[in-house]
Structures are given as C-alpha cells and as structure tokens.
Design a protein around this nucleic acid. Structure first.
Lengths: 147, 147
DNA sequence: AGGGTTACTCTCCAATGGGAAGTACGCACT
DNA sequence: AGTGCGTACTTCCCATTGGAGAGTAACCCT
C-alpha cells in the first residue's frame, strides 16, 4: 500500500510532468504555435486574404513588408507584430530582409519550413470555416440552457 | 489624390479590419484554438499519452475524469482546467457528464465535432515532432549569430 | 465529530499584452 | 539649415490574464 495521499500523488505527478515537459519537443513547439498572432502572421504571409485574386489561398509564398503586415493584421499592436516576427525568424519559419532604399524597406517571407506549417494551418482554417456555424449554435444553446 | 496621411490610412484600415473581424468566423474560432490549454486538453481526451497501449494515438474517443485530466496535464492550474473545459463544452467540442456517486464523479469526452478537430491537431503535433530539431537548431544559430 | 475524497471556486499577485508616444535614419521641400 | 514626413521599430504605462494556493460543498467512513 502506497503511503501517499491524493495531494502527494498530484504533487508527484506534477514533478514527473515537469521533467517530461523539459524534454518534450512537441510541447514547446505547441507553445509557439498556439500563440494568438503566430497563426495570423503565418496566414498573412501564406498568401490568403481578400487582396489576393485567383486560387483560394494556394500560391507562391509571398513576401510582405512590415507596414503591409501591420495593415493586413490591423488588430495587432506594433509591439506584438515585431515580437512575433522576431520569434518566427529565430525559429527559421520566416526570413527578414532589409533593403536600404529611400525609407528603409523590410520584407518578410515564409521559409520552406514555415510554408509547410502554413499548409497545416490552412487545414485548421478550413475546419473553422466549415464548422463555425455549428459551434456558434452550440454556444447559443448552451447559453440559453443556463438561463 | 487622397487626402489621407499614412497614419490616417492605418486608422482607416484598422476600422475596416475590425468590421471584418466581427463577422469573420474563422478568426473567432482561431482565437479559441490558439489557446495554450485547448490543444492540450483536446490531445489528452483524444487518447494519446504514455498510458495508452496499442496504436499510436488512434482509438476510441476516451472519457476522462476531471482529476485524471488534472494529473495528465499537471502543468495546468485547476482554474484554467475548469475554464478550458467549460468553454469547450459550451462550443460543443466536449461533453460533461456528472454521476452522483459517493464523491461526485465528472467525466469529459470528445464529441464528434471535437474529435474531428482533434484529428487535425494530431497533424500539427506530428509536424512539431518531425520538425522540432530543425527549429531548435535554427534558434541556436540565430542566437549565436547575434553574439 | 473529524478526516478524507472529488470537483470545483475565490483571492491575491506576478507576468503578459495593448495603446500611445518616442526614436533613428534619411530624403525633400522651403 | 531646419522642419516635416515616412518606415520600422522601441519604450513606458496600465488593464487584463493566468498561476498558486487556500477555501467550499457534499457525502461517507471510522
């Protein structure tokens, strides 16, 4: 018979988990991906949005300027845009190119790695578009049920 | 010639975007999905983890108790676990079942909708596992480059 | 009556993110 | 020469968020 209370077991599980976490690659990468703005920046660079004519979200990886991204993702603060771009660059998902033009020009572009992640995210986006109505009606049902 | 400064244009773009945002289903759902704990709870309920023998992450949607989830995702606080479970229930991605046993038992299970999202997320998880080394070495290269 | 169990809820505090303003650089106009 | 404009940031301040830990309700067992 173990000499552990449930609380002690929970504390132990937490230690095990933390050790596990430190060595777990997918968890750390998941932290990167499940950032509110990462997916959005990826989507913007992966050539979707209303300004793109032609096929639905499939095309050449597009290079965009900082200001262009800021306009496209207008909800984002400049701080978070810069921060997100830096971390994506650090991880090798995008490239940052500085051109010393009249006012300096900085462009960002998906790398091959970034593009491969974007392709997956597109699947999630399509799921969202396909099932949003269902989710919304579930929400409404839940809220009125609790009345 | 427009009579707008760049700042004004940006403000205008922001208004346009906000209006767009309000009506955009995928954006709102993306906010739900790109929550640190949502993906983790989904993964836990979608029968992966070391305690599951047999096939790699593919199986019956598993029902788990609150305490079982808390143990599995030991990094999560009780507050966030409860909050995440509630929001997932509200959206119809999981079900919550209360059984009035001696100490009350509450079990959670993926719905069909939740399962379909989980299947997508598994793809992301696999991407993460496949490319984490690459990301890690990119990070290291970036950090030493800046020395 | 006191202790134990589950599934929360509440309270406090530290970290995170947004908004607005400021910075550096360089041309361009007066 | 000085003021202004434009890009691409950085800095400061403050509201919101999330974590840690204690508390709660219900019920059984000893």
């Amino acid at each position: 018979m173990p000499t552990m209370t449930a609380a002690q077991q929970r504390a132990q599980a937490k230690l095990d988990y933390d050790a596990f976490l430190a060595g777990c690659p997918s968890r750390r990468l998941l932290d990167r991906i499940s950032d509110k703005w990462v997916a959005l920046v990826l989507a913007a660079l992966g050539s979707d949005g209303p300004h793109r004519p032609g096929a639905d979200g499939v095309g050449e990886p597009r290079s965009m300027r900082y200001s262009e991204l800021a306009r496209r993702l207008a909800g984002i603060s400049q701080k978070m845009l810069t921060q997100t771009l830096r971390s994506l660059e650090r991880d090798g998902l995008i490239t940052r190119t500085v051109t010393p033009t009249v006012p300096v020009t900085v462009t960002y572009e998906l790398t091959e790695l970034g593009l491969s992640l974007h392709d997956l995210m597109r699947g999630v986006k399509e799921w969202a578009e396909a099932h949003m109505d269902e989710v919304l009606s579930n929400r409404e049902a839940y809220d009125t049920r609790v009345d």
